Amino acid sequence: SELMNSSKLIRMLEEDGWRLVRVTGSAHHFKHPKKPGLVTVPHPKKDLPIGTVKSIQKSAGL
């Protein structure tokens, strides 16, 4: 199965306009000026399962 580095996923979010608002432990929480909701990324993780990545991307509207 495909894995993604959390840094790469965070870069994709930031390029889309998401900004880090809070860190709780290894959970990084992002908000967007125009899009609704809060997106949480486990970080640092070298090997996020593709299912997790897809669900984060979906929440972020990517």
Rank of each mutant, 00 (worst) to 15 (best):
L13P: 00
G37L: 04
I56N: 02
N5C: 14
M12H: 06
I56H: 01
G25P: 14
K35D: 01
S6Y: 04
K46R: 06
S55R: 12
L48K: 02
T24L: 08
L48F: 05
L3T: 15
K54Y: 04
G37E: 05
R11C: 11
G61S: 05
R19S: 11
L9R: 01
K46P: 15
E15S: 08
S59V: 11
A60F: 01
D16K: 04
T24N: 11
P36S: 13
K45F: 09
V53E: 02
I56Y: 01
P44I: 04
R19K: 11
V23F: 05
H43S: 03
M12A: 08
A60Y: 00
N5F: 06
K54H: 07
L38T: 15
H43E: 02
S6V: 04
L48M: 08
K34M: 11
E14Y: 13
Q57P: 01
P36T: 09
K31T: 13
K45W: 07
L38I: 15
W18R: 00
S59G: 08
M4F: 10
L13K: 00
K34Y: 14
K31W: 09
M12D: 06
H43V: 02
K8I: 15
R11G: 11
E14L: 10
F30V: 01
K46S: 14
D47K: 12
K46M: 13
I50C: 12
K35H: 04
E2Q: 08
S1F: 04
D47I: 13
G61P: 01
L62S: 04
G51D: 15
V41H: 00
L48T: 03
K46F: 15
D16R: 03
P36H: 09
R11H: 11
L3I: 12
H32D: 01
L38H: 09
E15D: 15
G37R: 06
T40W: 14
N5R: 06
G51L: 13
S1N: 14
L62C: 06
N5I: 14
M12C: 08
E15C: 10
H29Q: 14
L9C: 05
P44V: 04
G37Y: 04
H28Q: 07
S55E: 14
I56W: 01
D16P: 00
K45L: 08
K8V: 15
A27E: 15
T40I: 12
K34A: 12
V39N: 00
H28S: 06
I10W: 02
G51W: 11
S59H: 11
T52S: 06
S59Y: 05
M4C: 11
H29K: 10
I10Y: 02
K8W: 11
A27V: 10
I10E: 02
Q57I: 15
L20M: 07
K54T: 07
V41Q: 00
I10F: 02
V41A: 01
P36W: 07
W18Y: 03
E15M: 11
S7E: 10
K34F: 11
H28F: 07
M4E: 06
T52V: 14
V53W: 06
G61C: 06
K45P: 05
K46W: 09
A27H: 15
M12P: 00
H43N: 03
A27M: 13
P33D: 14
S6G: 04
H29P: 00
K31D: 13
S55K: 13
T24E: 14
L48P: 02
E2L: 07
L62G: 04
H28W: 09
K35G: 03
L38Y: 13
T52M: 14
W18N: 00
H29V: 14
E2W: 06
A60E: 02
V53M: 04
R22A: 13
S7P: 04
V41T: 02
S1W: 02
K34L: 12
P49D: 15
R19D: 08
V21P: 00
D47H: 14
K31H: 08
G25F: 09
K46C: 13
L9N: 01
Q57T: 14
W18T: 00
E2I: 07
T40M: 12
P33H: 09
H43M: 03
I56E: 02
S26A: 10
H28C: 05
V39Q: 03
L13Q: 00
H28I: 06
T52C: 11
T40F: 11
E14P: 00
I50W: 14
G17Q: 04
K58W: 05
K31P: 01
N5E: 13
L48H: 01
P42D: 06
S26P: 08
E14T: 08
P42Q: 07
V53K: 02
Q57F: 15
L62V: 08
Q57D: 02
K54D: 10
R22I: 12
R11E: 14
E2V: 06
L38S: 08
G37P: 03
G51E: 15
L13V: 05
V53I: 11
Q57K: 11
G61V: 02
R19V: 13
Q57C: 14
H29L: 12
S59T: 12
H32Y: 01
G25T: 13
L62I: 15
P36R: 12
W18K: 00
M4A: 09
S1D: 15
S55Y: 07
A60R: 01
R19T: 11
N5G: 13
K58Q: 14
A27T: 11
I50V: 14
V21W: 10
P44E: 04
H29F: 13
V23R: 11
K54A: 10
P33F: 08
A27Y: 15
